[in-house]
Design a protein around this nucleic acid. Sequence first.
DNA 1: GCACAATTAAAACGTCCGTTTGAATCGTCT
DNA 2: AGACGATTCAAACGGACGTTTTAATTGTGC
Lengths: 224, 224
Amino acid sequence: MAIDTKQTILDTAERLISEKGIDAVSLRLITSEAKVNLAAVHYHFGSKEALVEKVFQRRITPVNQRRLQMLDEAEARTGGGPLPVEDVLRALIEPPIRLYQADGEGRRFVHMCGRIYAEQADYVQRIFDDLFQDIVARFSRAFGRALPEVPDVERAWRVHFSVGAMIHTMLDSERIQRFSNGLCDPSDADGTIERMVRFCSAGLRAEVNEAAAEAEPKNVEVEQ
Amino acid sequence: MAIDTKQTILDTAERLISEKGIDAVSLRLITSEAKVNLAAVHYHFGSKEALVEKVFQRRITPVNQRRLQMLDEAEARTGGGPLPVEDVLRALIEPPIRLYQADGEGRRFVHMCGRIYAEQADYVQRIFDDLFQDIVARFSRAFGRALPEVPDVERAWRVHFSVGAMIHTMLDSERIQRFSNGLCDPSDADGTIERMVRFCSAGLRAEVNEAAAEAEPKNVEVEQ
DNA sequence: GCACAATTAAAACGTCCGTTTGAATCGTCT
DNA sequence: AGACGATTCAAACGGACGTTTTAATTGTGC
């Protein structure tokens, strides 16, 4: 049946890509493990690129929807008052990390997400940027509201660092277990989320280094 | 002349890998841009893997030496007293980031470093782990000395987050320029370093969430 | 039950890859 | 000058890849 073939390909591709990366996984490997014909990928998806996009989009869409929903809820909770930066961070971090704990499927996706973010191929970058355009815009504004006392430049850098901590944890959650001699348990989603929120909120709210801030005001062209 | 060929291959490979990633760069591309014969790679290096290792090792070795040297200096400065976490962070972060500002070569290497760290192939992971074994050990101890009040588990997580911020900045330094509409200048090494140190030190020193810390003490097997 | 579209199947296509081969060339020393 | 190791070169090898083609099979509406 068609739907089963399509689903099986998607599931198998997701699993293999999350384990090995996009380049290292051939269509022949995917189709042989999925027990479907090699040509089925092109029949159902058109190309490997389109398959990769579908695999990624299928999972990231609900994650990003949940992110926006949590941000909406956080903003609704505050009314017009100050927006706690912890809430913004949680909205950004919790949906993907929570998946890691959920089941094997979720864990696979989180790995794949990190892998894809780190991927260098142009078409992957394009897929990524397309799917994250709204998220970037909404969260940039939210962090601005949550941290009005932090200058724009500093805030942009610190959000960048926070995203780095998140991506790195998603991509490399096993490495921390190895490097910490098993002390840290990356499958503890609640703990991971709370620790990351704690770490990033402290970093985001740190006092601004005045010396560095004053050294900055050379005119910077704002593009686009 | 032999040395020139070898150097040219190394330089060209470094440039191309930093731009496109390992998998996306073929030996044919490297040798054609370097204007040397295809077989020269195998003559001088033995294999593509060995070339990649050499390319990476050539640059990372002095970086890691400088890191250890800065850590030594920081520890010498304190005598037996408390070790400022900012000094440890600076020893970790400054050597690679400083390269970014230095010249085109350095910038290329920093990109490549981020790319390689994110690479999924097994042999790349092996190269990386080999070259970083000492660094991991020394810095783990240094962070322990600098943050005795932070429990081991929390500190391991926070160092992991800090490394994530660093890797992400090394890998994706252009993305912050784009996302911040040109506000942030990744070629300002001093600013980048100070901001990252500020961010990470605040995160590393944040108060430990007691609820999370108390939820933790299930017995965790320490492997190896 | 038949016609027709949707799907699956097997095989081949052309391309690019890392690697190897064997001869030609270069540099250096006697 | 001649010999010999070091290096360069053109060419080919075998394999893997994404994609395409063409035929067989299946499912569905009349």
